[in-house]
Design a protein around this nucleic acid. Sequence first.
DNA 1: CGACGCCGTGCAATCGATTCCAAGTGCGGG
DNA 2: CCCGCACTTGGAATCGATTGCACGGCGTCG
Lengths: 349, 349
Amino acid sequence: MASGEPTARRPTLADVAAAAGVSSSTASRALGTGTHVSARTRARVWAAAERLSFQPNQLARSLRRGSTMAVGLVVPDVAAAFYGTVLKGVQEVLEAAGYHVLVVNTGRAAGREREAVRSLRAHQVDGLIIATYGGYEDIGVPVVFFDDVLPDVGVGAIALANAEGVALLVDHLVEVHGQRRIAYVGPPDSSGEGRTPAVFTARERLDAFRASAGRAGLPLPPDYIRFADPLDGATARTAGIELLELDEPPTAVVGGTDTLAMGILQAARARGARVPEDLAVVSFDEPPYADLLEPPMTSLDRHDREMGRRAADLLLGALNGLGPAARADAGVQRVPLALRVRRSCGCAA
Amino acid sequence: MASGEPTARRPTLADVAAAAGVSSSTASRALGTGTHVSARTRARVWAAAERLSFQPNQLARSLRRGSTMAVGLVVPDVAAAFYGTVLKGVQEVLEAAGYHVLVVNTGRAAGREREAVRSLRAHQVDGLIIATYGGYEDIGVPVVFFDDVLPDVGVGAIALANAEGVALLVDHLVEVHGQRRIAYVGPPDSSGEGRTPAVFTARERLDAFRASAGRAGLPLPPDYIRFADPLDGATARTAGIELLELDEPPTAVVGGTDTLAMGILQAARARGARVPEDLAVVSFDEPPYADLLEPPMTSLDRHDREMGRRAADLLLGALNGLGPAARADAGVQRVPLALRVRRSCGCAA
DNA sequence: CGACGCCGTGCAATCGATTCCAAGTGCGGG
DNA sequence: CCCGCACTTGGAATCGATTGCACGGCGTCG
């Protein structure tokens, strides 16, 4: 009952046409545009299609039409809350517009992005949304970047207000809590692998940290700047432990990412450092369930889903619009960030 | 420099053939199987392909070959840690085997699964992996279910050992902590929407809870069983508050899902109930950063990625094998769960 | 020295839907 | 009463890659 005949062969348009007693061209018009077909035949064709439960072969359609109504999304890690939520936003917008989203996960592996883009192009996607990219060649379809940006190649980009965000965190530590010995644990800076991106998130955050510390006149020994490479909880934990073992350990740390901040929290716990008394911790990204952590994590509210939606909107514009024409007014949209004060910074809240 | 000519038109196999001075059939063989082509021409064709940076059109190839080398994955919520990680496992295995993964997010909306399956079929996927499904018709390609299972339709299924898992949690509360007043907050039971699944995760967990409570001779007022509908933190929080406001409130709660357990934690916090002293909380699924929560959450370790890998392996078997033949030995694989004791149950750890 | 066989190559059909073009029908107006 | 236009319909080309079949050439064996 559940499975019917041994998968007889999917009915084709020709089968429907035969069943309805018309030619396949007429059947196509009846099911498609509806123009140039009498109401009577249209009804007959629809009935036949219904009866055979006909599903048009999208491959053939796309091949003929030259458009797949699909866009590719390239992200480093779908399982990360940030990208997962962004994906949701992207899908919302694009599916409402009749597009499909093909997700490729690069796992942060070098070169996988290029490979992913090539493969998606081979699958004839109409457009691309890319989180991080190390390539530079012409992609051949409209591209929107987000989070990490190469505007020269794309039709536009969405990025976080990295500099303002980091300043928010550092200023809070300095001005409200009088912190002076603040360290930074950030994502690895992979510029230099032959890429010269215009907006490179990791570097922006680092530069902003240096700038904020400088503005506040903080001492900034080189040991206070660390990178978690590869970007995951384990390397961050190690970095955190190294910080705590310095002769002059910091009394506050800024985590450049939620994963990193969580790693630092684990380091503090492992070394018996109380948070925030011995070590205040703040995070750029908001970790999941930030307010149920011990202590609740002070961080920046990010509007992930909204970022996804904006990126998708940008791409849709390029897809519907005249393509390259949209490039002029595009540029990089910055998404603002809001400070969410909790307890890990030292606040009572 | 970044973007080349105004996207001249992608080179086709015919272009490559012309550039190499051969027919397109020869070019195809040279780039493909390599058989029936002299070494000299093969080299010439490859050089030409390289020069034009030719990418074969997968649409045309798939149309002709009758296989897309793509499989669809249908999940309720990619942004949820569970599904995100499963997706990773699935991708690992399938991409290693040369397949692509098309992810569709249903957002737990009724009917969206059916729609997703139809659409994926129209895109000619070679197989499907489905988390939850409300349909029953013949799908026409090999299907593997996971987490929630309709084995009649598919070639196999991966599911969690729901009954054993719940028993682990309840027994621990009863035997180690002497708990008697234990409540349950679970995912909504959507059977009855015309579906009669063989393994329906939500119902299995509920039944297991009832059974475990019965075995231990616990009182089980109807009020102690609650459903969070729709499945999210907010409804769980409400359910938790309602439990705390009962005349005879429970002293322990089992959350049927990590999201639900977190909602209960929020409820306890909102009502000033101390965890675990006033209310012990345990969770079926392990929430992200379970050990950094306040209190660290006792829950079941799930091996998400392994589940994804197993599901993908199962599908690959059906894809390579003889299809329906594999159905015989398939059945439902159960993934065992391990209790991770932390503090939210009342343990000192 | 002749014939058979294999290797390399090109021609053409094919996958399934769309769409341009031509042809057939019916109708109304002149 | 006839011509022509509008409306339907079918035929055939097309998208781009793959593949069965046929053909020409060369080597080898009898």
